[in-house]
Amino acid sequence: MIRLVPNQSDSIQRAPLVDFTFNGRIISGHMGEAVFTALTRAGVLHLRDAPADGAPRGAFCCMGLCQECVVEIAGNSVESCRQPLSEGLAVLSVTRGKHG
């Protein structure tokens, strides 16, 4: 089929893969990419539950505004769209405030 917009996905070179964990599950991603892009590639879209109604939520604005992709790393709330991935990073879903 004729493509006016060629598929260039094979001509993209990426940094080496490293392992990290999300809620204990081992996932690989490219060193230095945003945590959320590594999770998205692995098919992990459901990052946390909304505190008020428990509904599943994932990355939305992808630019550090909406706070939907916030995860917990070393006890801190971190926007996974702005957090670079490093080897062994332990990423958890935020469960704060579920009691309310």
């Binding site: 505190p51 709330s77 469960t95 704060r96 405030g97 009691h99 309310g100």
Partner: peptide, 10 residues
């Protein structure tokens, strides 16, 4: 002045 944080564990 008053400030408020995000939701936290108890």
């Amino acid at each position: 002045t008053v400030s408020v944080t995000e939701r936290m564990p108890p």
